[in-house]
Design a protein around this nucleic acid. Structure first.
Length: 196
DNA sequence: CGTATTTGACCTGCGC
DNA sequence: GCGCAGGTCAAATACG
């Protein structure tokens, strides 16, 4: 089940896939803390999706502490489309990991999100001719990872998945809370619910 | 010379 | 148990 959200203030839209959590309980702001919002030159349409290991985690308070990295690369334009998808993902045994995926229309695969990343792997995955790149955050003691790959259906889009929570802020100096993604600004669209 | 990237090998989980 | 696919490691290489 996916729920469409619209932001009346910014003409943005989102589609949220929540397997078990009611749309009314979903708080985008729990996942998104925006830092270093800068103007990238490649973007006119943004999409993002969030993933969590389980619906339980999706509703947990832990979700409110992370993903500053993931959102820091968002560019605001008036025609942005933001797509949120919440679903289960694999997780290591004892490790509590959460992930958020951005689907970005971009010619560039590397986006400066304020954090420093070290590439540690590259893999061609099934059903996608484009390789997937693996990065780790270079921050001391920070185990956040991200995967970057081209959308298998449309190579104009880049899928960037952030996994984990930074234990530090960006090296950059300023910190911004992005209003368009504050949960208060998002309303469940009454007629826009679809099966995923 | 230090740091980042590349890339093949290895590890792990999952389905059959 | 086996094979496949995704994820990670680490030595080699490239680059500034």
């Amino acid at each position: 089940m996916e729920h469409y959200f619209e932001n009346p203030n910014f003409c943005h839209s989102a589609v949220v896939n929540m397997a078990a959590s009611p749309a009314s309980e979903f708080k985008i702001s729990d996942y998104l803390i925006l830092e270093d919002v800068v103007d990238y030159h490649h973007e006119e349409c943004w999409s993002l999706s969030t993933e969590t290991e389980s619906s339980e985690k999706a509703n947990s308070s832990d979700a409110s502490h992370g993903f500053g990295d993931a959102t820091s690369s968002i560019t605001t334009t008036t025609n942005n489309n933001i797509k949120c998808k919440n679903k289960g993902i694999k997780q290591k045994k004892a490790e509590v990991s959460q992930s958020i995926t951005f689907r970005t229309r971009s010619q560039l695969e590397i986006m400066d999100d304020g954090y420093k990343w070290r590439k540690y792997g590259k893999k061609t995955v099934k059903n996608n001719s484009n390789p997937r790149n693996y990065y780790k955050c270079s921050g001391a003691g920070c185990s956040v990872k991200k995967r970057v790959e081209r959308d298998r259906n449309d190579s104009n889009y880049v899928l960037t998945t952030y996994v984990g929570v930074h234990n530090h802020h960006t090296p950059s100096s300023y910190y911004t809370q992005m209003p368009l993604l504050h949960s208060d600004d998002w309303n469940l669209h009454p007629s826009a619910t679809q099966n995923s």
